[in-house]
Design a protein around this nucleic acid. Structure first.
Length: 240
DNA sequence: AATGACGTCAACCGCCAGAGT
DNA sequence: AACTCTGGCGGTTGACGTCAT
């Protein structure tokens, strides 16, 4: 079959972006919005491939990006999230506002790996190097046994099982999303109580509890006021 | 001052999933 | 059903800066 490349190789700039290119890209996206990256370069008058434009925008030009050093809190959050989901940088980035997957990936490879090793932990498994697998309390799940890509819901978020919560009590991986006009609620005890207002009765909860074959884990289903809640579970696979 | 080693990070590459035809 | 297109992701590369000798 064969797939045409995302861009013609000829007449395409590669390498570092110039200020002028950045300005062109920003101006175009401000005027026309994101979308159709393939045709964007031509429309914006850029000699770049669409992928390159997208990457530049996502990783560097997009408003709201935090530049600069990661805080200690961000460090710890990245470590915890990596322990849960492995190298799913986009998922991790989704939990760190203003940070990009590329930035986190680089930061992981350059800083956090070393940090974990200096703690005597294997950055891949989060277990003590040459470690004792029996001691799992408080140690995040190994990346290899972490949530698989298809364990994630469509919106790219994962929920937290009670086990996860035990490991990382301060970690919010709640999957709950809402229809337009109804903000998602945090997975607190309050959130588990019947929501108020008709809009929240349409809440779509994509609670996604690993290893659950039945729906008992989602507290929102227990509430008769949340009868319009839709839920999604991944069936258990063999060996789980 | 020169230069080689090392660290950082922006950007590229290849693959995949999902939507469209 | 088969194929194509597009967006998105993770892994890798290479240019550049900094440090050590």
């Amino acid at each position: 079959m064969g797939r045409s490349p995302c861009c013609e190789k000829a007449h395409i700039n590669k390498g570092a972006w110039t200020k002028e290119e950045d300005q062109q890209l920003v101006a175009y996206i401000k005027a026309h919005g994101e979308g159709c990256w393939r045709s964007l370069p031509k429309a914006a008058g850029l000699l770049r491939c669409g992928k390159s434009c997208r990457l530049r925008w996502i990783n560097y030009l997009r408003p709201g990006l935090k530049r600069g050093n990661f805080t200690e809190e961000e460090d710890e959050l990245i470590i915890k999230l990596h322990g849960l989901v492995g190298n799913k940088w986009s998922l991790i980035a989704g939990r760190l506002p203003g940070r990009t997957d590329n930035e986190i990936k680089n930061y992981w490879n350059t800083h956090i790996k070393r940090k974990l090793m200096s703690r005597g932990l294997d950055p891949k498994t989060h277990l003590p190097i040459g470690g004792v697998p029996s001691h799992r309390q408080g140690i995040p799940m190994a990346a290899d046994e972490a949530v698989k890509p298809n364990d994630m819901a469509e919106d790219g978020h994962s929920s937290v099982t009670s086990m996860d919560e035990e490991r990382c009590p301060d970690l919010n991986l709640d999957l709950t999303i809402s229809l337009h006009g109804c903000a998602p609620k945090p997975p607190t005890a309050e959130a588990a109580t019947p929501a108020s207002g008709p809009a929240c009765a349409q809440l779509i909860c994509l609670c996604y509890h690993l290893g659950l074959q039945t729906s008992e884990a989602c507290s929102c289903q227990a509430s008769p006021d949340l009868q319009h809640v839709l839920r999604f579970y991944r069936p258990l696979e063999e060996g789980q």
